[in-house]
Amino acid sequence: MRPLLWSMTRSDWHGAEHLHQGRGTIVAANHQTNIDPLTFAYFLWANGVVPRILAKDSLFRVPVLRKVLVATGQIPVSRGTTTAGRSLDAAAAALAQGETVAVFPEGTLTREPDLWPMQAKTGVARLALATRAPVVPVAQWGAHRLMGRYKKLLKPIPRKKVTVVAGPPVDLSDLYDQPLDGPVLREATDRIMAAITHQLEEIRGETAPPEPFVWRRGTPA
Rank of each mutant, 00 (worst) to 15 (best):
residue 33 T to W: 10
residue 68 V to N: 00
residue 102 A to P: 01
residue 94 A to F: 02
residue 141 W to S: 14
residue 201 E to G: 08
residue 9 T to E: 02
residue 36 D to N: 14
residue 36 D to K: 12
residue 3 P to S: 06
residue 87 S to I: 12
residue 69 L to W: 05
residue 188 A to F: 05
residue 219 T to H: 14
residue 125 A to F: 06
residue 144 H to M: 14
residue 214 V to Q: 06
residue 66 R to Q: 02
residue 101 V to S: 01
residue 58 S to I: 11
residue 112 E to D: 14
residue 190 D to A: 03
residue 220 P to D: 14
residue 192 I to E: 01
residue 190 D to W: 00
residue 154 L to C: 10
residue 49 V to A: 06
residue 58 S to Q: 14
residue 21 Q to P: 02
residue 71 A to F: 10
residue 61 R to L: 07
residue 147 M to A: 02
residue 128 A to M: 12
residue 98 G to R: 08
residue 194 A to Y: 08
residue 50 V to F: 05
residue 7 S to N: 02
residue 187 E to K: 06
residue 22 G to W: 13
residue 114 D to F: 13
residue 211 E to W: 06
residue 175 L to K: 07
residue 86 R to A: 15
residue 180 L to H: 12
residue 149 R to H: 11
residue 26 I to K: 06
residue 102 A to W: 03
residue 96 A to P: 00
residue 50 V to G: 00
residue 181 D to V: 13
residue 107 G to N: 05
residue 62 V to A: 06
residue 204 R to K: 09
residue 216 R to D: 12
residue 178 Q to E: 15
residue 161 K to C: 12
residue 151 K to D: 13
residue 178 Q to H: 15
residue 168 P to Y: 10
residue 117 P to E: 10
residue 80 G to W: 13
residue 91 A to C: 09
residue 53 I to F: 11
residue 39 T to W: 07
residue 171 D to R: 01
residue 92 A to L: 02
residue 140 Q to H: 10
residue 68 V to T: 08
residue 46 A to D: 04
residue 27 V to H: 06
residue 167 G to S: 09
residue 67 K to E: 15
residue 44 L to I: 05
residue 176 Y to R: 03
residue 120 A to G: 07
residue 5 L to T: 03
residue 113 P to F: 12
residue 132 R to L: 01
residue 99 E to V: 03
residue 109 L to T: 07
residue 98 G to C: 00
residue 83 T to S: 09
residue 9 T to W: 01
residue 95 L to I: 07
residue 172 L to G: 02
residue 200 L to H: 07
residue 136 V to F: 02
residue 216 R to P: 00
residue 210 P to W: 09
residue 106 E to S: 02
